[in-house]
Structures are given as C-alpha cells and as structure tokens.
Nucleic acid binder design. Sequence first.
DNA 1: CAGAAAACGTA
DNA 2: CGTACGTTTTCTGT
Length: 928
Amino acid sequence: MTRLAPVSDSAKTAPQSTVATSPVSAPATAPATAPATGLPSGGTPRLLVVDGHSMAFRAFYALPPENFATDTGQHTNAVHGFTSMLLTMIRQQKPTHVVVAFDLDTPTFRSLEYTEYKGGRNKTPEEFYGQIDLIIKVMAAMKIPTISVDGFEADDIIATLSTQGEAAGWDVLVVSGDRDAFQLITEKVLVLYPKKGISDIPPMDAAAVEEKYLVPPNRYSDLAALVGESADNLPGVPGVGPKTAAKWLKLYGDLDGILENVDSIGGKVGESLRAHVEDVKRNRHLNHLLRDMDLPVALEQTLLQSPDREAVEELFDALQFNTLRKRLFDLFGEEEPEDAGEAHEVPEHQLLTEAGQLTTWLKAAPGPVAVDVLSEKAGLAHEAVAVALVRADSAVVVELSTADEALENTLATWLAADAPKVVHEYKEALKALSVRGLALAGVIDDTSLSGYLIQPDRRSYELAELSQVHLKVSFEAAKEESGQLDLGLEGEKKFTDAVQRGYVALLLSEHFAPMLVERGAEGLLRELELPLAAILAEMELTGIDVSQERLATLLADFTAAMNAAQEAAFAAIGHEVNLGSPKQLQEVLFEELGLPKTKKIKTGYTTDAASLKMLLEKTGHEFLAQLMAHREASKLKQMVETLKKSVGQDGRIHTTYAQNVAATGRLSSNNPNLQNIPIRTEEGRRVRDIFVVSEGYECLLAADYSQIEMRIMAHLSGDAGLIEAYAQGEDLHRYVGSHVFGVAPEEVTSAMRSKVKAMSYGLAYGLTSFGLSKQLEISVDEARTLVKDYFDRFGGVRDYLRGVVEQARIDGYTSTIEGRRRYLPDLASTDRQLRELAERVALNSPIQGSAADIIKEAMLGVDKALTEQGLKSRMLLQVHDELILEIWPGELDTVKALVTEQMGAAAQLQVPLEVQVGIGASWNDAGH
DNA sequence: CAGAAAACGTA
DNA sequence: CGTACGTTTTCTGT
C-alpha cells in the first residue's frame, strides 16, 4: 500500500524521492528535515552557520555594484547577493537554526602574533563600505543572530558553533569561502563552499575533501600548514604542494609525525622542509581554529523564526529590494495548515489479463469509478496505452497493448456505458481514448472542472495542487499528468502512479460534491462544462485546414515588408539598432533624437504603438513611421511563422482549448492561440485567408453574436431605454447617442457615435472618467459630463452597475445569469489599488461570464442539432462570441438555419440575441 | 536558465 | 486610472 501523507508531515516540503529537492543533493544524504518556518518536527535540528564576511565578499564580486544601488547612492550588491544566497540556502537546506558570524576590524590574536597575517590583501573596494552593517540589519530584521567577538575571527566562532552543534547531536552546515573550514568536516558537519559566485555552492563532506586534497578533513590544517595559504599571507614550504604534503601525511600520520621525522625525508623537498620548519609550525598554530570560545549566543538561540515583517518592509523599502522581499515572504509566508488531512491508503492494483477479471471487478461494488488514462505521444495527439480503474478499496489496470480482444472489448463497452465515472482532465482522456478508437461516457465529474467552478481564479488545477489545497494531502504521482511525461518510467511505476491519481481524483470528487451544491454549480458542471468538454475534444482533434501556399506567400510578404521597414528605419537615424528592444529604442528616441517623453513605465518611457503614433504626429520623424511599420510587419511575420510551425502532419492546425483558465468562464486557446488572429487591419486580415475549407467540404461558416455584451448589460440592468432600442432593432450606438447628445437619431455624427460606443463598452469594464478622457482624447471634465449625460438617460445602467459592486461586497462573489460565481475577496482589501481592481472585475465578470455561458450553451445546442439531424457539417473553432463551422456539401441552408436558431435560443434575455452569419472558402471570406 | 516586463494580437 | 486571455522578444537576476 502506498500512503498519501498528510501535508503537515515532512512530505509537504520534501518529496524525498526526488534528488533535486532533497535538502542536500550531494554527496551526503540528509535526514528528514523540518519546514523552514517552524520548529523541528521531531527530526534532528539542523544548524546553518554562515561566514558573514567571506560570503559578503563573494556576493560583492559576483554582482556588479553599479546595478545595485539605492537612490541615495549606497551600494547594495553585497547585501543583495548575501541575502539572496541566504534565502536560497534556507529554502534548499531547510535548516532549523541559523546564525551568521562576522570578523571585526580590530586586531586578532593571530595578527598580534604574526603581523603579516592576512597582509598583502587589496584595499577593500569603496563600494563595499557600509554593506556589512546593512547585512547585519537585514539579519536583525530576519531575527537571525549575528556573532562577532573582539580579538577573534569568524572562523573561530564558526568552529566553536559547529563543535557545540555536533556535541548536541545536531547536523551542521557551515557556509564559508575559507578553506580553513574544511578541518571542521565530520559525519555531522558539512561545509558549503562556493566555487564561483554565490549560487554554485556544492556541499563538501569528508569524501569530497579527500578526493580533492588527498587527506581526511582532520588533517586538512596540517596540509595547509605545509602548503601555505596565500589568502592569509601564510607562505608554506617552497616546492611542496598538496600532493607532496598528502604523501608525507600518509606516511607519518600527522604533522607532528612529519616534524619528528624531518631528517629522514630526502631530496630537495626534504631540505626545503627542514629550512622552513618554523614557518610550518607557525602556520599550523595560526590555522588552528578555536573550538571552545565563550559565545554571546547559545545554540538554542539560533532557532530560525519568522522574520519581523515590519522591520523587513522598512529595511527593504530603503534598500529597494523588491524581488527579494517577495522571495523572503514567500519563503516564510506559507502558513502551516491548521489541520492536516488524514493519511490515505491507496489501493494496490491488479494488472488484468483476462476479460473475466474485469467483469468481476466491475460488478464488485457500486459507486463511481475513477478512470485514469495513460497515454503516449503518437504523432500529433496522445494515444491511450493503458487505463487504470480505481475504487476506494481496490484498483485494476488494463494495458491496451497486451490486452486480448475480449479484455479490450469488455473495457471499451464499460467505458462507453453510463456507469458513473470520475476523471481528472476529461477532455484529455477523451482525446487519448478517441485516438485509440475508444469512447468514454458516464463521466459525472472532472475534478479539474469542478475545482475550477468552485474557485475559478486559481492558476492551476493540477491534481497535486488541488489535493494539497483541498485535501491537505500531497502525493508524488501527480507530476506525470496522465502519464504524458513518462518516457523513463518503468511500466509498474506508471501504473501505481495512475492508480494514485485515480484515487486522489475520487477523494477530491467526494470532497467537491457538497461544495458544488452549496455554490449552485452542479448544473454548470453536469449540463454545461462536461458536455462541452466532449465537444471541444472533437474540435481539437478535427483541427482546421490551412493553405500551405498562402502561408508561404504571406510569410515572404511580411518578411520583405519587415526588412524594408528596418532598412528605412536605420537610414532615418544613420545607424543600426535592435528595433525589437524597447530599451535600445528608448535611447534612440529620447536621448539621441531628443523626442518628447512619453508615458512613464517601470524601465523608463514607453515605446508602445499609441505613443509612437502620438510622437509621429508631433514630430513627423521618418524613423517613427518606419518603426511602426516594422512593428506591424514583424508581429504578423512572427504570427504566420508560429502558425506554420504548428501545422500538423495532417496539414491542419489543432489548437487546444483551456476550459479552466479564464476566471470569467471564457475558454482560452493555445498552441497555437486561434483566438487572437488579426482582423482589424487590412494586412492583418490576410492571416485569416490562411484558414481554408477542407477538401470535400463546401465552405466555412462564421456565425457571431452581435453586441452580446451590450445586450447582456441591457438584460441585467433592465434599463428600459436599452431594452427598447434593442427591441426595435435600432443601431444601439446611434440610439444612445441621440439620447445622450439630445439630437435626432439621424443627426448623430460618426464622432458622436464612436464616443458613445467607447463609453458603452468601457462601462462594462469599469471605465473611469479619466480613462475615458484618455481614450477619446478629451478633457476629464468633458468625459465626466459625457458619463453624467449617459447615466441621466440610462439610469438603469447606473443603478445596475452600482448594485453589482454592492451585492458582490455583501456576497463576496459575483454571478453570471447561469449562476457561475467568481469570488472577489479583494473587494474588502485595504489596498486601494487592489480594491478598485476588484470593483472593476466585479463590474465585468457577470457580463463577460454570461456571454461565455451563452456561447457554451449555444455550442451544446449546435452540436446536438447537428447530431440529431445526422449532418456531416462540423464545428471547428470558438472565438468568444463567434463559432466557425465547416459545411458539408448540400447542408449549407440547414446548418445556417440551425446555427442561427441555436445561438439565438441559447438564453432567454429581455432583448433578442442577434446572430450574424457569413460564409466563404476561407475564414476571412466567411467574415463580414 | 527561468522569470519578469513590454509589447500586441483577439473578444 | 476598463475586462479577459496567449505569445513573443528582450532583459534581469540567479
């Protein structure tokens, strides 16, 4: 039995089976560790001792000081690098205790005894000044103790700490760029020694030291005494290097042994040794580290704690460390789950060979069965290779390649039957099975969809993540989603992983069931999203035909246009520049050409299209015109190139729809994205000519909703004026314009109409007067007046918009007409930016989301009608408010009527849903 | 080498 | 200082 560990155990932070994330990747295996933020959870305490100065210097030389400075001119590269290194170290090594030791500027017993000690070093660079103090401040804010002792070096403090730690039975990690630290290595003490920079820090253990220096760690100082240490200005015996020194040490045991036998060592090196015995003794004396100092900090006081948030905020503000601040809080921010889930026993599985076994298993007990489909890449799609069936107490696996006909038939029949099934990522399972000629029906839950309906704004709905978040259970099999990355996996492991995934999906599904009911999302899952997944699977597998010739022509045209524009742009300024680099463009535009400054962005001033257009109007500079031409051409060229690359062996493009990415309920399209094919410009529209009707079909049909979002606004607001306008089939914007501007409809100028249009749509996005003024290039006052006039005439809209936010604040969520929810906790945020964003989201989500629900509903209707009427025409694409179909010869009129009917009937609103239909041999021709 | 930022295409 | 996306390139920070 495999145990799924509750999250609060070590399993949460350490998937110990994977090398990359285990605390020490080499060479010693680390014991189980405690989470970075908490107390040791029964494991051995783990002490991280850092040599502050040596790491600060490493950081200083690893990062260019000119890139790290505050506005006040204080350099921070060493502070930044040091803090970054420490965070990485804490994340990777997961110490329970941390302490940093520093040297002081004052003389030490070593320099007093030997004045040249550490002499000959270069002067500390100016930029380093003050950075040690800053590091100490950072440590204070992180509540990490720092130790320095007058008259002693950090090395002695470190030696003492590691000795104390080892005596207490702890594991100790010493981070130091000083080789003297090697003498501290034991079974319990490892040294992390930075090779170069601060990120490449391999752990050194006894074996690693022996390999490198040919002596065990406890002889390292003997060896160093003989060889010398240039960093400390300690000359060794001339002619003696590590090899000779190691040979002697082996021969005589230790340094004392060698010194007792100096006279018996022959050769030139023997002579050299005899001449430098005093140096060696001095070296050995000086490199001996004190292990019994009295330290001002007890071992227990180095316990790693949560940082002082306020102090960190203040300090990092001053240091202008924003990415580090995030990393720090990410590292310490994750809160321990109060209640961990229970441990679960994943059932063992049986690999079936005979149909009878499957029949028996399927009969055994009621309740849903989880289905996990293992697939392998086969050409352009994934093909199912095995199917795992999982119940709470038992599991079976059918391997398709080895199953005999009877077994496969039994499986196929059951998969295609109504027997209740639970899956994770239904659409992918459908596709993989379909490629193998298998159907899948009776699916009552897809946890990637139910998870989405419950919480639609998550980044990911991977099984492992849902399991962590909802069940507080972590497990390892999740990564190989549906076995797609399984190349190196042994067959047996693949199967146990599949069973684990199925088991977790089953648990999640049970967990989600009451949540779906509570949120009223059951219907959306069963009657909308699940059936839609099957349609999308078909559409993805079908793909859309493209014309290779047009693709090639277009690519050549755009490339030529791009190159021409580039040449002309270079000519206009007399030199070359990377037109794709906003940074370089800024230099040319604002420094070289001295053009007026545009809108400020994080990295300077924007060079976006709107600003370039403005600059061109102001200055008429040729470079700007060519740059804009280049931008357009290169964008299109790139897009065509990407499309070309994504054409499958069947000559078609197969996009993938994501059903759980857009928080509003929309689909998204990727690989390639077919929902952002250009349409606005003449040149861009040519890209749509690439998409053509397939051989044997009559034409493409494009059907889109006319102004669906405005109609939803009219419906939701119940505004009498808007409803009246739509009821009469008037030009909405003209109608609104005539009321807002108080003129007759036929007197509405195109300028008035476009203003009104911009505002109408803007309102659905939470547009402000400021934003409107910018877009229409009018004053804020004018914009404000426009909004007021609008609302005076269409008060229903104003009341609705106001009410949406109010209601959302009360409920904590917004709803679409179909009841799809979006939770908006930020409405209560004290951060004004966040709160106002949440308010705009609250305004938009019901509108965008309702439109998404409606077209999804329409897709079900269209699919059903096509099937019921036995038509061969098929749906190919969805672009938010538009459906692209491919028409079988002779079916045009039927399908045209059916699509119009189904799209129009997808929702009963207070206003009609108008559908426009176009046909043509290409997507462009089908547009209107 | 991964991730952020900037830019830009769609509804 | 309008929403929702995906993709590309360049640059930055490891």
